[in-house]
């Protein structure tokens, strides 16, 4: 039998799951981003530090993200729009999930590609119609997966990855958000 290797260390994840069952306090993570206004609707966000396993943690390197709006919004387009970052987060979270679940189920994956589309009626954010919401009306993800598995097994991978996805949950369920001025 060939060894399935999607590059996911499932053993470590399963061990972590067992260890954290008895240590819920170590499972409390805080993810952080800091943001700085540049000019107009352009800002720069950086991400490096987070908290977890009972202590401060840090990514290997700092990541910097520019957010702006496109020229059709009369902006300079120095980066993608903030709401597009949600699509980036959803796609990468579900993709990681598919690879991990496949590894756990002994399925070799060769490629995972997806397209994420968010339907957005911008009359909401423009205040043009108070019945229109600000956020997405619908989000659609289409996966194209090449793996040693039947169509049904692949559908099950995608379903299970949604079931365990942090970003999918954050988008489909309400979350308490507090915004204050320091």
């Amino acid at each position: 039998m060939t060894v399935v290797d999607n590059g996911v260390n499932v053993q470590a994840l399963l061990e972590a799951r067992e260890a954290l069952k008895g240590a819920p306090e170590a499972a409390q993570f805080t993810w952080r981003a800091t943001s700085k206004w540049e000019k107009g609707v352009h800002s720069t966000a950086t991400v490096q530090k987070f908290f977890g396993l009972g202590q401060e943690q840090t990514h290997k390197k700092e990541s910097v993200f520019s957010a702006d709006h496109p020229e059709v919004f009369a902006a300079e387009d120095n980066g993608i729009t903030p709401i597009e970052y949600l699509l980036v987060g959803l796609a990468s979270c579900l993709t990681a999930g598919v690879a991990s679940v496949a590894q756990n189920r002994g399925i070799q994956v060769r490629s995972i590609e997806s397209t994420v589309e968010g339907a957005h009626d911008i009359r909401g954010i423009l205040g043009a119609d108070s019945d229109v919401r600000n956020g997405f009306n619908d989000v659609k993800v289409t996966f194209n997966i090449n793996a040693d598995a039947s169509k049904e097994e692949i559908e099950a991978l995608v379903a299970q990855s949604q079931k365990r996805s942090a970003v999918y949950d954050a988008l489909t369920n309400p979350t308490n958000v507090t915004v204050e001025v320091a």
Partner: peptide, 16 residues
Amino acid sequence: ALFSGGLRNVCSLADL
């Protein structure tokens, strides 16, 4: 009352 937008997936899981 606020409902999840994830109905489709719980149905897919149950169907599968």
